[in-house]
C-alpha cells in the first residue's frame, strides 16, 4: 500500500529540518570542545569533529522533527479508540533510508582515513623518545641525546616519535592538547604490537601528560609534566639531565623483534 506522502507538508518538514540543523550546528560549533590546540594533529582532528557536528546535527534534526511532527499531527483525540492507517511500509522509502546513511557513513570513514593518514605521516628528521610507564610514574629516555628524565621536553615544530614501554601493567599516554593517545603495553618491543606513534607539537608551553588506562590505585594522579620549548632551551635542558643508563628500556628497544 502506498503511503499518502502527498498529504504531508514535505517542504515545511524539510525546512524545519534545515533550520534545526543550522541552529544546532551554529550553537555547537561555537565552543572549543577539545580545548587548546598544541600539535599539528589537533586542528585536523578538531576539523573532523566540526564536520561530524554538522552531520550529526542533521541526523538528529531529522529524528526530532519527524518525532515532533508525528506527535503533534497524529496524537489520538480523547476517546478515539480507532486504529491508524494500515500502512505496512514503502519499499522506496526503505531503500532510501538504507542507502543514504550507508553513503554518509562511508564518507565519514573515508574522511577519517585521510585525517588518520595525515596525522600519522612521519617526518624524516623526527626525534625518537621512549616513554616508559610504571605504577605510578613516567620517565622518558632520549636515545639520541643519551639522557633520561621524568619530564617530557620537546622542541616546538619538531616531530617526535614516541615508543611506548610499560614495566608492569598497561598505561596510556595522553596529552589532550596534542589529541594523541597510545597505550603502553608490557612485553617485548615490537614483538606483536604497534607501540610507537608520531606527533608534532607546534605550540610552546607547559602541558600535562595524563595516564588514561586504569593502572591501579595511583592511576588518577599518574601524570608527568610536558614542556614544549625552543631548540636552544631544549639543548640547555638536556645538559642538566641524567645520562641514559646502559640497561634502560631504550636500550632494550634496540633488540630485534622476536
Amino acid at each position: 500500500m502506498a503511503p499518502r506522502m502527498k498529504g504531508l507538508p514535505l517542504a515545511r518538514i524539510f525546512a524545519a529540518i534545515v533550520v534545526l540543523t543550522v541552529v544546532m550546528s551554529f550553537i555547537m560549533l561555537i565552543p572549543n570542545w577539545d580545548g587548546e590546540q598544541a600539535s599539528t594533529a589537533a586542528p585536523k582532528i578538531d576539523e573532523l569533529l566540526d564536520v561530524m557536528i554538522v552531520l550529526s546535527s542533521f541526523v538528529f534534526s531529522i529524528v526530532m522533527v519527524m518525532l515532533t511532527y508525528a506527535l503533534w499531527r497524529w496524537r489520538a483525540k480523547p476517546g478515539d479508540e480507532g486504529d491508524g492507517e494500515p500502512i505496512h511500509g514503502n519499499t522506496r522509502l526503505e531503500i532510501a533510508w538504507t542507502t543514504i546513511p550507508t553513503v554518509i557513513v562511508l564518507f565519514a570513514a573515508a574522511y577519517s582515513w585521510t585525517v588518520l593518514d595525515k596525522i600519522e605521516t612521519e617526518d624524516a628528521d623526527r626525534m625518537p623518545i621512549t616513554a616508559i610507564g610504571q605504577q605510578y610514574e613516567w620517565h622518558f629516555d632520549y636515545p639520541d641525546q643519551g639522557v633520561t628524565s621524568e619530564e617530557l621536553h620537546v622542541v616546538t615544530d619538531q616531530q617526535i616519535e614516541v615508543s611506548m614501554r610499560a614495566l608492569d601493567v598497561l598505561h596510556s599516554f595522553w596529552v589532550p592538547e596534542w589529541r594523541i593517545k597510545r597505550d603502553a603495553v608490557p612485553g617485548a618491543p615490537g614483538a606483536s604490537i604497534d607501540d610507537d606513534f608520531v606527533v608534532t607539537p607546534d605550540k610552546a608551553g607547559a602541558f600535562s601528560l595524563i595516564c588514561t588506562e586504569l593502572c591501579g590505585i595511583g592511576h588518577a594522579t599518574m601524570r608527568a609534566p610536558v614542556v614544549v620549548e625552543s631548540q636552544a632551551e631544549f639543548n640547555k635542558w638536556v645538559r642538566t639531565q641524567d645520562p641514559l643508563p646502559k640497561d634502560s628500556a631504550a636500550a632494550a628497544s634496540e633488540v630485534a623483534p622476536q
Binding site: 503511503p3 519527524m66 497524529w74 491508524g84 492507517e85 526503505e94 533510508w97 550507508t102 570513514a109
Partner: peptide
C-alpha cells in the same frame, strides 16, 4: 581501518530501525 568501516556500517541497520519506528508513528493514532 577495516574495523572502522564495519563499525560505521553498523549504524545503517540501527538507523533503519529508528526510521521505521518513526514511520510507524506517521498516520497512526498515537
Amino acid at each position: 581501518v577495516p574495523m572502522m568501516i564495519t563499525t560505521l556500517l553498523i549504524a545503517v541497520p540501527t538507523g533503519i530501525k529508528i526510521f521505521s519506528w518513526l514511520g510507524t508513528l506517521f498516520y497512526g493514532k498515537i
